[in-house]
Amino acid sequence: MDNFITRRRRHELMVAGGLLVVAIVVPLFIRDVTALNVIILSLLFAGLSQAWNILGGYCGQISLGHALYFGMGSYVSTLLYVHGAIPPSIGMFAGAAVGGLAALLVGWPCFRLSGHYYAIATVVVGEIGYLLFLNWDYVGGATGVYIPIAKPSLLNLQFGKDKLPYLYVVLAFCAATWLAAWLIEGSRWGYAWRAVKDDMVAARSLGVNIFSSKMAAAAISGAFTGLGGAIYGLYVGYIDPDSVMAGHFSILIALPAVLGGVGTLWGPILGAALLIPMKELSSSYLGGSGRGVDLMLYGAMIVVVALAQPQGVVSLFRRRAHGPA
């Protein structure tokens, strides 16, 4: 069956394929380490924000506690390596599993709350997680954990000083989250989740189970966030609660999607492409004295987007109405 939905989805897949090729080829010609670093972080946060978007955008459950799943992913993968000698290329999937599980555990009580109360509950749960890890000696407490330097290999997901392999790992992560969102959009789940977001009463009158829809979205979102956390830990080589679990990560994960367009395929990518380079540039130019300036810039951008383009930057590119008039 060929109609505006199938055509749109085919078009999206082709654009994504094209962008992927560009993202594979272009970095081959970039030698500048700072530029590569910015690209890596942008791709990572594009993926993380897409993971957030699966729950917050498609299912409409605004989480401000994703730092918890992010941090748990990086801790699980790191500790499995340090204490269990399990290579990070395997450990990161354990991190993903724990991230998904944690999202389910948070969702079990919190999805009984609606609207703002769910968002508030996730902030609190995120802070509890942060404080627990800060005071838990087995996981390094406030001192944190160093990831031992190993022979560069794909198994260890360590590549010495070479940034390009990291870039491709992060690119694969970003592409996987995009593909997951694309698949969800076209599936029974995606339709149910969007219905839950728009109108719960109407959704359940059509046989959509609200609670299990939210739980499924949370599990997928948490798992990808945990995976991203594991990759981030490996990239920076050292983790402590402040660097992977602090509340501002929750904001940083949600912001690209909010800026780019909530509940859209391209919103998180577009948002990350704008936000992360700006954040990195402002902090590298301003150094320690500029701490907080990037946050002021985010604030300004959010206000501008909210006033001028509430559907996010992505809506600038959208035709007004697709399909037959």
Partner: peptide, 26 residues
């Protein structure tokens, strides 16, 4: 109504209660 969705998509939400796959629901 599900306002972020098109008319066809609105109706597909209902159709998915009997159909397992998107093309059938569509």
């Amino acid at each position: 109504s599900f306002d972020s969705m098109t008319v066809l998509e609105n109706v597909m939400v209902g159709a998915f209660s009997r159909a397992g796959h998107a093309p059938v629901a569509m």
